[in-house]
Amino acid sequence: MIKRDLVVVGAGPAGMAAAISAYKAGVRDILLLEREQFLGGVLNQCIHTGFGIEYFKEVLTGPEYAGRFIKELKNLPEINLSLRSFVIKLNCDKVLTFLKPGQMEQVKAKAIIMATGCREKTREMVHIAGSRPSGIFSAGLAQKLINIEGVLPGREVVIVGSGDIGLIMARRFTLEGAQVKAIIEIKDRTSGLLRNVIQCVKDYDLPLLFNHKIKRIYGNQRVKKVSLAKVDKNYNEIKDSEFFIDCDTVLISTGLIPENELIEMADIKIKSEDDLNKTSLPGVFVCGNSYKVYDLVDSATKDSQEAGTMAAEYIRSLNA
């Protein structure tokens, strides 16, 4: 079994910031595990601008924001990177089991920082009735398909939810030549930032429908159409307001959920918001979107740096 002072799980913005800050606070024996082939996490697919305004006082794209931390990490050889490394288990003795192609390893750490990010709510979680054809994507998956894989998931798109990823993807689909037929929001206002309504929706005259809900998805093999209805302020459907939109794609952009299954499986609890980054097991910290879903990466970075410092202090207290 490998032994390390600190293991950081996840090399997205949170994990990178935490690892670097732990280093700066004196930890020298750090292992940073990343399941993907590249550092940077979801930022790599967020090619639009809007990152770094608070933290760097500059307007950056996602990959550029990640790039700053990647560069810093590469100058710190004491932080050991292990890519394509997928953690399958964490236990209360702070032993992590991870897989990588050709290897299964266990590592015992003095402190652990979990920075495993979040996942998107699915169509199933928001209970949209109807059939289950191809053409239903989470907004983030569509973003990955377009920006990383260079493929177009659909040509006539209805977007469910007006969160930031949904709005950003409305613009992205439009620029890639697809038609955004509607963006549907059940509330009377957007759940994303107003600036994204301006530069992603208004700039391209896209139809953003407030007080509307999606009722049903139609189509056996591929999405054929959806039915929508108006809702009152209690989100109850207004009678006889149902109408249909033909489309081949439904994008779900209804929110994010922290990914904390490893911690849950180890029966470790995340503490409340006033106890930033802490868990019920001393020495195990959680940061970034796996701690709580942040609106801005800049704030996640700051809080994750705090996690790095806390882990360093914890390790110091053990050695004292």
Partner: peptide, 20 residues
């Protein structure tokens, strides 16, 4: 080709276009 990968047979292709 990626364009021909389906969810559950013909007509259920996952993607609609590709930059190549």
């Amino acid at each position: 080709p990626l364009l021909e990968i389906t969810k559950k047979g013909p007509g259920s292709e996952i993607i609609k276009g590709i930059r190549n």
